[in-house]
Design a protein around this nucleic acid. Sequence first.
DNA 1: GCGAAACTTTTACCGAGTCAAACTTTGAGC
DNA 2: GCTCAAAGTTTGACTCGGTAAAAGTTTCGC
Lengths: 207, 207
Amino acid sequence: MADHGLRERKKQATRLLISNVATGLFIERGFEEVTVAEIAEAAGVSKMTVFNYFPRKEDLFLDRHADRLEELTTVIRTRPAGVSACEALRRHQHGLLSSGHPLSGAIAGGPGFWWVLTSSPALTARWYEQEREIAAAFAEVLTEETGEAFRSRMVAGLLTTAITTIFAHAMGRIVAGDEAEVVRREQAAVIDEAFDLVERGVGDFPG
Amino acid sequence: MADHGLRERKKQATRLLISNVATGLFIERGFEEVTVAEIAEAAGVSKMTVFNYFPRKEDLFLDRHADRLEELTTVIRTRPAGVSACEALRRHQHGLLSSGHPLSGAIAGGPGFWWVLTSSPALTARWYEQEREIAAAFAEVLTEETGEAFRSRMVAGLLTTAITTIFAHAMGRIVAGDEAEVVRREQAAVIDEAFDLVERGVGDFPG
DNA sequence: GCGAAACTTTTACCGAGTCAAACTTTGAGC
DNA sequence: GCTCAAAGTTTGACTCGGTAAAAGTTTCGC
């Protein structure tokens, strides 16, 4: 069985169809202005089926979360010996940026995406909930490695804060209308500033 | 007019009544198991009135947020000269702990409260949303003071992470059934560990 | 091809939250 | 005190997200 049956292919196709239809409608009209029933109809499927694939309406839009979570924990778990989690993530962020990956927060492609995200409280809430899941996953990895539960949790939180803030900063600029290319050019320094703060501490800022 | 009219007193009384009735029911049976209609009836008021005072159901339980936000920003804003925001908050947390304040996360009074909070996803989500509001408020204060927007935002995020993690740690132990007195005794070290990480950095943890 | 398992649809339902219109209470001025 | 306007409350109807159960429909193993 597995991933080659007709069944499985159809499922993936349906899932993708629903997700695409939904995303299209959201970008066109905004998250709150589109109902699940509408999405279902537009995708030629029943409302119940939509919820079969996506437990919450928000997940229709934020469906890359699982991949992102997996990717980020892998970065920490499989980092080279002698490299700290902080350093590994710093490099990863630089990598995302220079490859123009959407999650670096500085892509040309779609202010539409960021607009949808920022203009819906429910969606932003879910976004930040996903950030917390990332922090929890980090904490688990670090605790496994070191056995120090509280310290791991703290470090996980701080690292996640860096990632989130870096992202939010870029997103904010894009939404505010800044030129994507400019944002992108300046983003490397932002990444370093954030990770420097986590790695070396805030000191006595602001004096 | 102002805060001495009968009108205003009645409003405050109604608000308090609704909040108390709601909290009581939540602690008794859990957040999801109580409907707003039920709360309204128990408080002898209409459902609409409940929503008049508390825009979301979650706010019925987490109604101390405004005070907490105010208190925390004041701590930063009015800290003595030569004391960093980080240090001021560290001291504040120690103060909360030694005065047995609920928000220190280590009180004897009510595992009920923490149980309600942790057992409802909607409630925890709202809780963390409030943490983000705190981070945003911190960022605003720090930006006003220093003019460095991104750095302020990062530091605000890191400080908030410390507060949140300290709190979550204590709450987790209480909910898990640890003796409140023990948690309380060990909490001072937790506070210092958290703020040390923020102030001096995570370094190369975990090697 | 047959039967079981998986997927979808239908239908009915619940609870949060909104809206508008009617109704009641309070406060101010005379 | 009485009256009028404003503030607050209630009612009832409605929308939408989400769940549950049962009845189809499609795919798969044999």
